[in-house]
């Protein structure tokens, strides 16, 4: 069955899992925007939202697809990279970089940065929420808000977060367009719109995800 074993099918898996992760990131950012509310409102809203997500069967299915997508995306990238290393040419004098964007050639490095960030992110928030002993807020919900805000009160944590979000931005800048092309959108008119959408999407997510921890960090001194 050629759909499962060729160079193109491996890229299809990258594209499908990547596009699902792109979709998930939008939902994630919309949830994070609640952190920009006033502290008392943000706490209630964010913790309600977290409780709602953890108790919903539909969200649980999405979560399992998410875990699968992250692992499949990373493992498939590793398989593709190993195979590409075997076929790749080495030149004594190499100036091929002039023909393409740096981030399109370094998706593996950007992806590794994101994977390291995800491990930290899951350990600090997801694991603590799922398996840690969290304090409860006044509504009886697990107080994830206080964990997140405390993390964003550390300048070094905000730096790691923002650097990782820029890695995400460059990863998306190439990845979104690449995924759509891999799946086969070839009409010149629509391909152009997808390219523009991909750029706007990447900038929006990078700025959105980066702004929130910076805002939380700065506002701790303003109050």
């Amino acid at each position: 069955m050629p759909f499962l074993k060729s160079t193109l099918s491996r890229k299809n898996l990258m594209a499908l899992t990547g596009l699902f992760l792109c979709f998930f990131l939008v939902i994630h950012l919309l949830g994070n925007l609640q952190l920009l509310l006033a502290a008392d409102k943000a706490s209630v809203s964010f913790n309600n939202y977290s409780t709602l997500l953890s108790g919903n069967i539909f969200i649980k299915i999405i979560a399992y697809i998410l875990y699968f997508s992250i692992i499949a995306h990373a493992v498939d990238a590793l398989v593709i990279t190993v195979k590409n290393r075997k076929t790749a040419a080495k030149y004594a004098y190499d100036e091929r970089k002039h023909a393409s964007k740096w981030y399109s050639r370094n998706m593996g490095i950007l992806g590794t940065v994101l994977l390291i960030f995800l491990v930290i992110h899951f350990k600090d928030f997801w694991y603590v929420y799922k398996f840690g002993a969290l304090p409860l807020d006044k509504n009886g919900n697990k107080n994830l808000y206080v964990i997140v805000v405390n993390a964003f009160h550390s300048w070094w944590y905000v730096c790691i977060y923002v650097v990782s979000m820029f890695a995400l931005g460059f990863h998306l800048l190439h990845g979104f367009k690449s995924a759509v092309r891999t799946l086969g959108l070839y009409h010149p008119r629509y391909a152009r719109y997808v390219e523009i959408f991909g750029v706007v999407y990447s900038y929006t997510l990078t700025i959105g995800f980066s702004f929130i921890p910076v805002y939380v960090y700065i506002t701790q001194y303003i109050k």
Binding site: P2, S6, T7, K11, K83, N84, K86, S104, R105
Partner: peptide, 23 residues
């Protein structure tokens, strides 16, 4: 199917869509 299959048999790598080829 046959041309892509032969491309893989010959040992060419995956396309990363860097667009260097077009350039």
């Amino acid at each position: 199917i046959q041309m892509v299959g032969q491309m893989d048999v010959e040992g060419f790598g995956h396309c990363s869509n860097t667009e260097a080829c077009e350039v």
